[in-house]
């Protein structure tokens, strides 16, 4: 672990009257896994989406791999080439097979040949554990399988950073584990990850840091051991008691 690859400084974001981010400052280093937790509406998704420019910040600064994330199209595309994102609702392209979902951007953006992109796609399907589903359409896959295809689709662009926005909360309980295992594998390989998730088992096993957000700010940012054993803030304590039962 070395210098920060993501730097977030005094970021503010408003949606009309809603002040979703109120001066967030944090950073993530190469190979680090940061887990974000916090109550609904606390700004976790918004923060994540500011990192790859899906939301434009009102003030402050976000720098990813030395590229400032601004509204400029060149910068945003440069950042998105480095950053993969996995959504709660998978957002697979329903008109394409699993394989085509993974090859599309490789061919359009990375300009890889059909053969090369397919070879890479098959390797990635192998890696996420569903090589036999290459020709299935998203609607023919279970939620867990769809999410693993979505992870493979993001990995195919060779991102330096992976963002996850509640990747398991739309899944039936029996499918959560298979997705978490895939994410665990990535973490072990040294991928830099920012994960919004309330799967505390994952946080304990894979996270270097865990940050608690509330009302648009980071309240507490520490190691999982520290946070679970000895939360500093009363709000963190209350929130943890809710999600840890």
């Amino acid at each position: 672990m070395s210098e920060p690859i993501i730097q977030i400084e005094k970021v503010h974001k408003r949606f009309g009257k809603v002040h979703a981010l109120r001066g967030v400052t944090t950073s993530v280093r190469h190979g680090e896994v940061l887990v974000l937790i916090g109550p609904s509406g606390s700004g976790k998704s918004t923060l994540l989406r500011c990192i790859n420019g899906l939301e434009h910040i009102d003030s402050g600064q976000v720098v990813v791999d030395n590229i400032p994330v601004t509204q400029s199209a060149a910068n945003i595309n440069a950042v998105r080439a480095e950053v993969g994102i996995v959504f709660q609702q998978f957002n697979l392209f329903p008109h394409l097979t699993a394989l085509q979902n993974i090859t599309l951007a490789q061919q359009v953006i990375r300009k890889r040949s059909a053969e090369e992109s397919q070879r890479i796609a098959r390797q990635l399907l192998e890696k996420v554990g569903i090589p036999e589903k290459a020709d299935a359409y998203p609607a023919q896959l279970s939620g867990g399988q769809q999410q693993r295809v979505a992870i493979a689709r993001a990995l195919a662009m060779n991102p330096k950073i992976m963002l996850f926005d509640e990747p398991t909360s739309a899944l039936d309980p029996e499918m959560i584990q298979e997705v978490l295992e895939t994410m665990m594998l990535l973490a072990k390989e040294g991928m830099t990850m920012v994960v919004v998730s309330h799967e505390m088992g994952f946080a304990r096993a894979a996270a270097n840091r865990i940050a608690f957000m509330d009302s648009g700010t980071i309240i507490e940012d520490t190691t999982p051991e520290q946070l679970f054993a000895n939360p500093r803030e009363e709000r963190t304590r209350q929130f943890l008691s809710k999600i840890l039962h």
């Binding site: 609702q89 957002n91 697979l92 599309l104 951007a105 359009v108 993001a154 662009m157």
Partner: peptide, 29 residues
């Protein structure tokens, strides 16, 4: 759904590319 455009843009596609490869093929159907 809005998530389709977001997923395409997040993979690095421009607005036009996302329309061409992701949104319009679904809309046509």
């Amino acid at each position: 759904p809005r998530g389709q455009m977001e997923a395409a843009r997040s993979l690095g596609m421009s607005y036009v590319q996302a329309m061409r490869y992701v949104i319009l093929p679904q809309a046509i159907r």
